[in-house]
Design a protein around this nucleic acid. Structure first.
Length: 376
RNA sequence: GGGGGAGUUCCAGAGCGGUCAAAUGGGGCAGACUGUAAAUCUGUUGGCUAAGCCUUCGGAGGUUCGAAUCCUUCCUCCCCCA
């Protein structure tokens, strides 16, 4: 994997760059749609590639391990072939499930035992096993196994958890370096900064992660309920420490505003379920604000879904029609809404990149941010 | 013609003397959602000069301190037998 920086914003820490992987280039800053179980929910690959123009998508180690399972993935020759997606893939390690499935797992220094949410069966995930699974999946970028701490988290607990995540990282690196990929293409391992909302821990963790000297670095454990000011503060702090010449990935973030702000802090990569999940629940993000398409006020609004939107559903369908689809429970509703939201997110990061390269990022961001969280 | 059953708040459907403005589900309206246990979850859903009051359980009348609940009668619908 290779990362080059093509532009730096003068007023903020924003960068425009390009990541090269075995499955193609990714222009940064980038938003990566979440495709947990081998699909970005409600969108076909053709739309994802040609209309939304996603450059990289996510998969999830825990979910793919449970379903379809490693045998099927091995037979298929990895996730790219299994799902017929030839662009880059990044897999999360299951660290988020340590957080989100907290009532279904037992954690100890060796690893985590999950009780499957599907059939209740027990599965042990160690740092080594998580690397092995991600070798079978074959993603271009794979994540170290970490513990994503909840918010709030006491300083002592956060410190212990961070220490354990660092130990797990060392084990991931050793195991990762011991073997090569199964399908002949390069894979890169990204370590993850933890440390909850504590400056001292975040700094320690960022230094530790930076010292691993991997192809890219991730920031985890944020956007778990803390105030956004704290999230920005931690992100800023960590970005100061993480190497400039490698991509920085802020995991699980976020709202359009979160993304713009974090780009300004020097983050290059983002993922979040928000555009896809919220789309399925009737919430649309636009450059003019937020639309809850189920609201009665759209009943007779025959304007395009988003007049300034770039994807074809924005121009070819009205708000009244999309509302009708949601109210009637038609599955085309979530499909159209997901296409809209993802293409808006991709537009957002593409435009950010363009503005960075043009030297106008800061003023553009400030003007847009005001409008993003409005309710239409 | 004879016998039986039923009419409840937007709908379906509980309740069968006071704790009933009335369970539950649906529908409606609104909200939440941040490395996806999510096409999910939550709130709300008669009116008002709101810790109270008013109008509601097919219509009218009655019994009772008190009725959606009991009685009389009328109207409407359904089923069975001729």
């Amino acid at each position: 994997m290779n990362f080059t920086i093509e532009g730096l914003d003068q007023e903020t820490g924003a960068r425009a760059g390009t990541i090269s992987t075995a499955h193609g280039h990714i222009e940064t800053p980038i938003f990566m749609p979440v495709g947990t179980g081998g699909t970005v929910k409600a969108v076909h690959h053709k739309d994802l590639e040609e209309s939304i123009r996603a450059e990289i998508i996510l998969g999830n180690t825990y979910h793919l391990y449970l379903r379809p399972g490693l045998d099927v993935l091995t037979e298929a020759g990895g996730l790219h072939r299994f799902m017929s997606w030839n662009r880059p893939i990044l897999t999360d390690s299951g660290g988020y499930q340590v957080y989100s499935l907290t009532h279904r797992r037992k954690l100890n220094p060796e690893g985590v035992t999950f009780q499957s949410h599907i059939d209740g069966s027990r599965h042990f995930f160690s740092p080594e096993k998580v690397i092995d699974i991600q070798r079978v999946i074959g993603a271009d970028i794979i994540m170290a196994f970490d513990e994503c701490t909840p918010y709030p988290c006491g300083h002592d607990d956060a410190r212990k958890s961070m220490k354990m995540t660092h130990d797990w990282l060392d084990r991931c690196c050793v195991h990762f370096d011991k073997f090569t990929g199964l399908y002949g293409h390069e894979q890169s391992l990204f370590p993850i900064v933890q440390g909850s909302t504590y400056k001292d821990l975040r700094l320690d963790s960022a230094r530790y992660i930076a010292d691993c000297n991997r192809d890219g670095n991730a920031i985890g454990g944020l956007s778990v309920g803390e105030p956004k000011a704290l999230m920005y503060e931690m992100t800023a702090l960590v970005c100061e420490v993480l190497p400039r010449d490698k991509p920085r990935y802020l995991m699980g973030v976020g709202t359009p505003e979160n993304i713009l702000e974090s780009i300004g802090l020097g983050v290059d990569m983002f993922d979040c379920v928000m555009p896809t999940r919220n789309a399925r629940n009737g919430m649309l993000f636009t450059s003019e604000g937020i639309i809850n398409i189920r609201n009665k006020k759209w009943q007779s609004d025959h304007q395009p879904i988003d007049a300034s939107g770039s994807v074809y559903v924005d121009q070819h369908h009205s708000r009244a029609y999309l509302r009708h689809l949601f109210v009637a429970g038609e599955m085309l509703g979530p499909m159209i809404a997901t296409m809209h939201n993802l293409s808006f997110y991709l537009w957002l990061v593409k435009e950010a990149r363009r503005q960075i390269l043009a030297g106008t990022f800061s003023s553009w961001k400030n003007g847009l941010t005001e409008r993003l969280s409005r309710r239409l």
